[in-house]
Structures are given as C-alpha cells and as structure tokens.
Amino acid sequence: MAKHGRIGLPALLATALAVPSRVEAHLVTTGLGPYYDGIGHLLVTPQDLLPLLALAILGGLAGSDRARRLLFAVPLAWFAGGLMGLTRGQEVQAPVLTAITILIVGGLVAADRKLPSSGTLAVGAVIALVHGFLNGTAMSGAGLGLAALAGIVGTVFVLMALAGAWAVAWRSGWTRIALRVAGSWIVATAMLMLGWAAR
C-alpha cells in the first residue's frame, strides 16, 4: 500500500498537470498586462540592473542596517522619478548619464568606501531618481502608465532585497573581496558604455 502511495503521488501530480484548464494566456481580461510589462522591462534592461545590483551590494557591504534603509529608499526614489518621467509623454534616452551613474556606484563598491549613512542614502536616492525617471519616460513613450511603473518598482524592491541580503551575508572574508571585484567589473562595463555612447 505504501509502495502504491509513493508511485501514486507523482502519477496524481502528472495527471493534474495534464488536465486541460482555462488558461489566462492573455492578460487583457485581468488588466495586469502593463504591470508585467514593467517587470519584464526592468529584468531585461542591463542599464537598470547594473546600478541596482551595485546599490544593493553597496548597502550590503555597509551592514544590514544600511541595507535595510536602502531597501526602502531606492524603490521610493525610483517611484518618484518614474512619476516625473510618466509626465514627459515620450521616451528620453541618456546613455552618458546612465553610464556615469553606473560608474559612480560601481566605483564606490570596488573602492569599498565607508560613506556616512546619509551619503549612502543620497547616492542611492539620486541614482534611483535618474533611472526611475528614464523608466517613466520609457513607459510613457510605450503608452503604458502607472501599472507598468508599479511593476518596475515592485521588481526593484524584490531585487534590492535579494541582492542586498546576499551582500550582507557575504560582507566578510574572501566573499567581500569577490563583491568588490564584481564592483570593478561593473565599473569596467560602465567605461565601455561611455565609449559606446561617445562613438
């Protein structure tokens, strides 16, 4: 009986998965399409992911308290910048400014500079404002609105939480060095981005 039970569970799961059901493949009916557009936009835009990752590491290297503050400050500033961007009506692209923001925060991670708490928050807020604004203009240009921005900001929060927690856990020993090396690679990428922008 017990043996049948072990075999039965996978079979039951396989059957349940194979049963045809109503699939909400298109999100028109739910109205959540733009929200997922926002999530997808952030996840496939390295220009936003790189500074976000670097900010999370910067907060994590400074300890859990600093990481916690950045976890809330960055999404809030990203949202504020996004709201400003939504009012523009068309997409604004600023590759040089984007590269410079990545260069700054990546450089701070690589240098492992101990900034005051207000300094870390200020850096995080300004960079989040810039990228939020650019995201807002992109959403506005694509005819998407607040729901898309909510998707972006929600994803920013989740990624900040995951990467920040990882960085906090890794902030001592050789893993701290690995995080600093990652910061230097972010700097190198930003320098090449500057080159592409100037080309």
Binding site: A110, R180, V181, S184, W185, V187, A188, T189, M191, L192, L194, G195, W196, A198, R199
Partner: peptide, 18 residues
C-alpha cells in the same frame, strides 16, 4: 583581476572614441 578589466575597459573606451 581588478586592475586588468578596468584598464582594459579604459583601452576599449579610447578605441571606441577613435
């Protein structure tokens, strides 16, 4: 491994700028 990629990127940036 920090110095090489960063300076290499500087060289790449100079190349891209002509």
């Amino acid at each position: 491994p920090v110095v090489f990629p960063v300076v290499m990127a500087l060289g790449g940036m100079l190349g891209l700028m002509g």
